[in-house]
């Protein structure tokens, strides 16, 4: 992967300012309900810097960060910093809450499953074999020491972007009371409603046979899990990209896409992910959670 260009573009529209940049392989933007050009410059730089910092620190495509260190520790304990420890605690919580379905160590399945729309279905044997290297219960996590079995890997891809959104929002709120919306590749958070409107309006793209939706977001996080274009089809069976870390096999009958609103972006993201992992039970799972959500089947 080539080094991304780290540039910020500022645009003025009729209602305020937009700062746009790329991070974490996604288009990112900050919408600010203010006419103050120096403010958007300052905040845009803060938000982008935080996105790039988290990308650099937690990307699994680099060889100079903590994730590389952990994934190449060959069974030795690695001492991690406060921030990484916080994320590991959080992931451990999520692992328990999902009864093992949300697993930071499930990333290695990607080596086997390439969701390119083809009919390239791996064998059960290959998937089962790979499962030996998966399972958070095999990981020893005792703050600040993390010990992975040799061959195992962790990947913060499932929460990194949402975490970056929340972190950027925290930094932003220390600088301004202006309403702002931070959007990192579809995971987003609004700090407060715009001055001239009761809420932000967020459009959710139509996927498959679903319906597009217009979401009114006053404040808080919004995250989407699922995708129309990442699946495999063989013999008319659709294999979605959501993988069960216990079997190494896709979770069948999961919705095409789930969008969830919650106070923070990490919460929204995790609930959306959990709903996908619930497969056919996604609807009832979401109903139980008492959150605003939009499902597309």
């Amino acid at each position: 992967m080539s080094a991304p260009t780290r540039e910020i573009e500022f645009k003025k529209n009729s209602n305020g300012w937009v700062a746009q940049f790329r991070a974490m392989a996604s288009p990112c933007e900050l919408l600010l309900d203010s006419d103050d050009e120096s403010l958007i410059q300052e905040l845009g730089n803060i938000v982008a810097a935080e996105a790039w910092r988290i990308e650099t620190k937690f990307s699994r495509y680099r060889d100079d960060n903590i994730v590389y260190q952990i994934n190449n520790s060959q069974g030795k304990a690695v001492s991690v910093d406060e921030e990484t420890a916080g994320l590991l605690d959080f992931a451990e919580n999520a692992y328990q809450l999902s009864d093992g379905l949300f697993d930071l160590s499930s990333g290695v399945l990607r080596k086997l499953w390439r969701f390119d729309g083809s009919a390239n279905i791996p064998t059960y044997e290959a998937a089962t074999a790979l499962c030996d290297n998966i399972g958070w219960h095999k990981v020893r996590w005792q703050r600040p020491l993390l010990t992975l079995q040799a061959g195992m890997e962790i990947d913060f891809g499932g929460i990194g972007k949402e975490y970056a959104v929340d972190r950027a929002a925290t930094l932003l709120k220390q600088k301004t009371d202006c309403a702002a919306l931070i959007n990192f590749g579809g995971d987003l958070l609004a700090t407060s409603p715009p001055r001239n409107a009761p809420h932000w309006l967020v459009g959710v793209e139509q996927v498959g046979g679903g319906q597009s939706a217009m979401i009114q977001l006053k404040r808080g996080g919004l995250a989407t899990s699922g995708d129309a274009n990442r699946y495999l089809i063989k013999d008319n069976i659709r294999y979605p990209h959501v993988l069960n870390p216990k079997t190494g096999w896709p979770i069948m009958n999961a919705p095409r896409s789930v969008t969830v609103a919650a106070p923070s972006c990490v919460e929204a993201g995790l609930i959306a992910t959990f709903a996908m992992l619930a497969g056919a039970d996604a609807d009832s799972f979401l109903a139980e959670q008492d959150v605003l959500h939009w499902i597309q089947h």
């Binding site: 919580n93 999520a94 809450l97 009864d99 975490y163 959670q289 008492d290």
Partner: peptide, 21 residues
């Protein structure tokens, strides 16, 4: 999967992101 995970998740998120409200 646990039935209602919202509150536990909110608590975990609070811990991750620092004090919320």
């Amino acid at each position: 999967m646990k039935k209602n995970i919202r509150l536990s998740l909110a608590a975990a998120s609070c811990a991750l992101l620092g004090s919320h409200g």
